[in-house]
């Protein structure tokens, strides 16, 4: 296997090196890549979309079709994890574990034993030792809202600064995952159910594709936001700007939801218990 790997690697490497002499120098301002298409984007992008961040303009408008599938890719990944891993079988009821919330003591109940009374004070858990650290717990609780706020800012400010739906969505998802890591999966489920996550991911991408369809219905080509002008009551350029915002929100939703969904399924191997 090693020999095969070496041969393959050398062949691919050799092939890549073979082209190297004809590469333009790194950072060459007159290379074909910098002179053919990109000047158009840089010079026209802001005028067409009111988005000084040219990357956003290209991403969400000129090549919005690509980006839509990008969102679809991430959606498929989330769904694939769900599809592959999720198990709906009930766990066997032989031994159950409970934690006394105020003290953190773990109760183990053998088959036939009674559930502890006063379930307000006890919660079911899945493994003997569950990390439970108040400092981490509280710190994360404090951080999470700020991360979420920042995520919203990143999504909304994608036109003007580095950012956009993907980045913001990941941040938002990270906030939720952070909460999940510092607590456990069950506490996240209480706030954000699996079903809701699924909905959000689908709705997010649907917002994107739906915007495209609306453009199409309004007489334009697919994803041509300028045709939203009439509906939004603004001029064509502004309509594009708004269109970009709408789809960024959709992407943000989808990415956030998928990140969470990936975590849900990967961390608990599809059982949706406490997770890691």
């Amino acid at each position: 296997m090693r020999a095969l790997a070496l041969i393959t690697v050398l062949m691919v490497g050799g092939l890549l090196f073979y082209g190297l002499p004809d590469f333009p120098d790194w950072g060459d301002p007159v290379s074909p890549a910098s002179t053919h298409l990109s000047p158009f984007y840089i010079e026209q992008g802001a005028a067409d979309t009111h988005a000084p961040n040219v990357v956003t303009a290209v991403l969400a408008y000129y090549r919005g079709y690509d980006t839509m599938f990008e969102a679809a890719v991430i959606f498929s990944a989330g769904l694939a994890c769900f599809f592959l891993l999720r198990t709906f079988q009930q766990k066997s009821e032989e031994t159950r574990l409970y934690r006394h919330i105020p003290t953190g003591v773990t109760l183990r109940i053998e088959e036939g034993g009674k559930t502890p009374a006063g379930s307000e004070e006890f919660e079911p858990i899945d493994s003997h030792w569950v990390p439970y650290d108040m400092i981490i717990n509280m710190t994360c609780r404090l951080i999470v809202p700020f991360v979420q706020l920042f995520a919203l800012y990143v999504i909304a400010h994608g036109h003007y600064s580095p950012g956009g739906g993907f980045q913001g969505g990941v941040l938002f998802g990270a906030a939720i995952i952070l909460f999940a890591i510092s607590h456990d999966l069950r506490s996240v489920f209480r706030r954000l159910q699996e079903k809701a996550v699924m909905f959000l991911s689908a709705v997010g991408v649907l917002i994107y594709a739906g915007t495209g369809v609306v453009c199409l219905v309004l007489g334009g080509n697919f994803l041509d936001y300028s045709f939203l002008a009439g509906m939004l009551g603004v001029d064509a350029v502004m309509a594009r700007s708004h269109g970009i915002l709408i789809i960024e929100i959709g992407v943000g939703l989808a990415v956030m939801a998928v990140m969470v969904m990936l975590y849900y399924n990967l961390s608990s191997a599809g059982r949706h218990d406490e997770g890691l």
């Binding site: 839509m68 679809a72 959606f75 769904l79 699924m198 909905f199 991911s201 689908a202 709705v203 991408v205 649907l206 594709a209 739906g210 495209g212 369809v213 199409l216 080509n221 697919f222």
Partner: peptide, 17 residues
Amino acid sequence: SALLIVVPLVVAFMVTI
């Protein structure tokens, strides 16, 4: 030509829901 891709794409998300 666009519809033949867009329609299944949009419906795919609806099917999830």
